[in-house]
Nucleic acid binder design. Structure first.
Lengths: 235, 235
DNA sequence: ACAAAAGTGTTGTTACTACACCCATGG
DNA sequence: CCATGGGTGTAGTAACAACACTTTTGT
């Protein structure tokens, strides 16, 4: 941005997306490379950025064109790396995105593309396991202080279903009752008034809930200190 | 990173740094542009990235070369943007960094460079007020769930001094006692056993504290839920 | 009637906050 | 000895977690 007249080196900007969803467990979208390098390994969807194109637009474009994913409910930038490269190699500036796809949206995937459980990844190209790990970490954090789960859930759901999604991401058992109380108190959830019909084994029908907002909202801003003004405030 | 053989557009990667410190208030390091565009306006330190150079290295290099800042105690990537550009213009990929400089480190600044209170910024070039705001926000968050303040403080300090730094960043009054209890419980602070001599008006000498770690540590990982396993865990 | 699933009420526990009180120093 | 600044102890409160109990369904 210091627009000097000085000549500078040129790089190829690329975006890569860690697309996550939860079915029975947490899954990431990968496509299998046919050509070298890393032929046969699984890679994150992504590609080159067009000249002057916003990075987020590039991410959405590649998700749509390359793997047919339209239903991205949340897209968030993670980080950017400049890869080391020799004199002949291409110099890539790689921006990583986290994309969340809700349950129920079933994108039609091309044949080389499929979902993989994050717990048992196939061989991943370019050492991008760390990217998947970073995305997973970020998502775990967001679940605890925001309404990020809206982007993983269908419009309406039961507390049980919501707790299962939390459990899949966090790797802990999560109690539906507690989760519901906390998120309702924080103004994240609201009861729709509707109910689900009971399952085949009977049981009381579950109340249906929905998220109050369908964009990311920070529900607990400063975790540690509520006011912390203390007696000093009197003076 | 999908290294196809396809030709791609070329961009110039740049880094920009929001360098923050706290003296009496929160301050950001800016330098005044002489040349157009935006001559006279104040800009973030930064510049072009060398071919194959890691972004963080580029940030440190520009801080050292351009504004003489060596004592960066914490450096963290914020986000990356691809600026829109016409056919003739340069296409820049701009990665933003947050850098923290501790009290006591007094870098020798070049004449066009100086610290400015974040609360009353001069005219800032390229609309980078939002970048400063983003950095401020991120820092505020980090203070509440990590030991990030280590990068703003000298090695040893009193609880009062620490609370003043928190207050300057968060914009609230912060009670030294409470802050000390919370951070000690979390294993962030430790008493050195030393004491400060009293000020000129007398008063009890304050205990000296130091941070347990001099790199970023997340002191309270998941804010909302402690375990949340509930009765379901029994089954 | 009984099992299964879900929601409600209540209690225990933790930990943040406030405040009253005590300690140490300089003038 | 008193003002000033700093630390300690303790009580109030909010919120999370656990668990017993009730509600509502299917078989």
């Amino acid at each position: 941005m210091p627009v000097t007249t000085q000549r500078s080196e040129q790089a190829s900007p690329v975006v890569n997306c860690v697309v996550l969803r939860v079915t029975s467990g947490l899954e990431v979208l990968l496509w299998q490379r046919r050509k070298a390098p890393e032929a046969g390994a699984w890679a994150l969807p992504g590609g080159f950025v067009d000249r002057g194109e916003p990075l987020e637009a590039a991410a959405r474009r590649h998700l749509l064109e390359k793997v047919g994913v339209a239903g991205v409910a949340h897209l968030e930038q993670l980080n950017t790396t400049s890869n080391a490269c020799g004199p002949g190699d291409a110099w890539l500036i790689d921006t990583l995105y986290l994309a969340l796809v809700p349950q129920g949206s079933e994108p039609r995937l091309p044949p080389d593309t499929s979902w993989h459980p994050v717990q048992e990844l196939p061989p991943v190209a370019f050492g991008h396991e760390s990217a998947i790990g970073l995305a997973h970490q970020r998502l775990s954090g967001k679940l605890s202080y925001s309404n990020a789960a809206f982007a993983l859930m269908p419009e309406r759901f039961t507390l049980r279903e919501l707790a299962d999604v939390y459990a899949a991401v966090l790797g802990t058992r999560v109690a539906p009752t507690h989760l519901g109380r906390v998120l309702t108190r924080d103004g994240v959830l609201e009861a729709t008034g509707e109910q689900r019909s009971a399952g085949r084994n009977g049981g009381r029908p579950a109340d249906e809930y929905a998220f109050q907002h369908e964009e990311l909202v920070i529900s607990r801003p400063l975790a540690a200190f509520r006011t912390l003004v203390g007696p000093a405030a009197r003076r």
